[in-house]
Design a protein around this nucleic acid. Sequence first.
DNA 1: GTCTATAATTCGATAGAC
DNA 2: GTCTATCGAATTATAGAC
Lengths: 200, 200
Amino acid sequence: MTETDTTGSPAETPRRSDATRATILTAARERFATDGYERATIRAIARDANIDPSMVMRYYGNKEGLFAAAVDVDLRLPVPEKVPKEEVGRIFVEHFLDLWEKNEVLTALLRVGVTNAAGAERVQGIFREQLLPVALRVCPDPEQAPARAALVASQMLGIALTRYVLRLPPAADLHREELVAWLAPTVQRYVTAAHPGRTR
Amino acid sequence: MTETDTTGSPAETPRRSDATRATILTAARERFATDGYERATIRAIARDANIDPSMVMRYYGNKEGLFAAAVDVDLRLPVPEKVPKEEVGRIFVEHFLDLWEKNEVLTALLRVGVTNAAGAERVQGIFREQLLPVALRVCPDPEQAPARAALVASQMLGIALTRYVLRLPPAADLHREELVAWLAPTVQRYVTAAHPGRTR
DNA sequence: GTCTATAATTCGATAGAC
DNA sequence: GTCTATCGAATTATAGAC
């Protein structure tokens, strides 16, 4: 968690003179985000960070450790408490788009989660520990919260996939306001609407 | 196209005694679907197909050629003509789920498309040549068809991603009927509903 | 802390015998 | 058509000098 902020202060662990670590993690996130796990080589990451490859090994043990440190993030909403129930869809969509456009961690996480078992488990963990609690507080019926959260995640990850990773032209070209206008009602329905039942 | 059917007849190209090719492509699809492009090695694919690795090179030239042949599919709906306009959402969702559960091609395509540039272009091509034409016929305003198709693709690929690839427990555990009941109205709205405008 | 050298694998691709 | 042998390159990871 302390490694996540590349800009701010060292905060918790005032380790001896290691902006180097932050530089490595930033370079790692970029490489993992653009190349995926296999093709993001330690050599290339070290070259981007202007250090020796062996330093990466020294700091993070192996490639898996480097990845784990690079994607240690907190996605939780900063303003979750008192939002109007009818706006939860729009607020969540905008928060998610903000996260995705600001940070490279999510792209890295998605790219690696798709082809790497450890990456997939990391995504599952984030869903379970960061998204589910929010859903449990917002959804009307706690028993339905996991399914509703999964539906929201499917639409949000799907948009990220088509827009930022696969870059399907129509999805990538949509203006943000238009995108929000389309997606917000979907998310709103997944969160608050009555269970549709098994038949249409 | 002729290589796709692993079960049926050779059809167009009655090449000399090559069930071998079909065996290779089946093994390749499985490996690409489970491991992604980089980790699906020619050696492993050949081992699965019980042949020599050099045969794969001989038949398909290189790894890219093998992948291109393995994911050469036709996803178009078999019954697209006269469906009630109010049921297009449900019909499309069910068709998509059928495709995904029957075939490994889609998983391979998604896994590779996320981490490989050529794979991403392949997905773009399929969207453009197979999904867009359907959208142009179904959507009310042809000008909005690309955006609407992209929104549908985002929800469908998102569900495939969470359910079949990342395997988020709530998404993977949803019963099919329940999933259709949730998704069909979303797709229906993306296809037929009036443009929501730029504000809520 | 930093870097050189290198071990140990593994991969895609080629050449050529049969 | 099929297989053996192998090249050349790239990778992670380690050992050790400075």
